[in-house]
């Protein structure tokens, strides 16, 4: 254990550490705490420039009701779910199969295909932007939820394949061989032998992809426009333009936009970190 465990330190040092922890945390999250507090402030506070003092009144209900009543934020959030959930299902399903194929079978070009997925996952979005937009327009699904979700599924398959392939590669291969000796078909091996063992990987990828897609802003602006289809990230940007200095409303909107991934993270923390730190220890 490094640094030296604090239990072994002198009592004053221990006390100091316990005081330092919350102080450091408050400083670290200060910008966020300020936004949370501002989302409760009244219009009067904003006009008087009372941004950092204690709010003169708490207007949580008013502010949050106001953004739902006066803006399409409910629709934006709904759109975000409509893009995110199919993407998670699609990308995880596709990559279970590609990962399985690349981890289990030896064939010519296996490593090359694998590297294709890995490299594609790292390219800058801008190199894809013009052709993908064009392609989406030609398919007639520009400015639709499916147009955006289809692209996300395809792109995330790169990262997911990297993850799944390495995960399956680490499973004991004897299981598959034993099943083959028994005469089990390859498809049944995938379904009954390997897939049940992949549950932790599926969970980890699901939370990770959920967060990535929920927070996507670039593709939302490239492939959608208007409140009917735009997810919350792009929506927040356009609301920001309309609200100008109604910071209490902008703050409330920001907090709402941040909620789903934050809740997801807290519910599935272990899986989330397992997914993110893949390869950080070996």
């Amino acid at each position: 254990m490094f640094p030296r465990p604090i239990e072994k330190a002198t009592p004053p040092a221990r006390a100091l550490y316990k005081i330092a922890l919350p102080i450091a945390l408050i400083i670290w999250l200060l910008p966020l705490l300020a936004v949370a507090l501002t989302s409760l402030r009244s219009q009067a506070d904003i006009l008087n420039g009372n941004y950092w003092g204690w709010p003169t009144s708490f207007n949580m209900l008013e502010n949050y009701t106001a953004i739902f009543e006066n803006t399409p934020i409910g629709q934006y959030i709904f759109n975000s779910f409509r893009v995110t959930i199919p993407t998670v299902i699609g990308a995880v399903a596709l990559s279970c199969m590609t990962g399985f194929a690349l981890a289990v079978y030896k064939f010519k070009g296996n490593l090359l295909l694998f590297f294709l997925f890995v490299a594609g996952n790292f390219v800058p979005f801008q190199i894809l932007m013009v052709p993908v937009r064009d392609f989406t327009v030609n398919l007639g699904i520009y400015n639709t939820i499916s147009g955006l979700a289809l692209f996300h599924i395809a792109f995330q398959t790169g990262f997911c394949t990297l993850f799944m392939r390495n995960f399956i590669k680490a499973l004991p291969f004897e299981l598959i061989e034993a099943a083959r000796v028994e005469g089990v078909s390859e498809i049944r091996i995938f379904w009954y032998v390997v897939l049940p063992l992949m549950k932790p990987a599926i969970a980890a990828l699901s939370v990770l992809i959920f967060t990535f897609i929920w927070n996507d802003y670039f593709w939302a602006t490239v492939l959608t426009q208007g409140a009917d289809t735009q997810p919350i990230t792009a929506g927040l940007k356009s609301l920001n333009g309309q609200w100008l200095s109604s910071w209490h409303l902008i703050s409330a909107g920001s907090i709402l936009a941040a909620m789903p991934p934050v809740i997801m993270f807290f519910l599935m923390q272990r899986h989330f970190i397992a997914g993110l730190t893949l390869g950080a220890v070996k």
Binding site: S95, M97, L113, F135, T161
Partner: peptide, 16 residues
Amino acid sequence: FLMPGLLMFVVYVVIP
């Protein structure tokens, strides 16, 4: 097993 994922990836990432 590779076909669906690879097809999507090639159409949306590699070719562009």
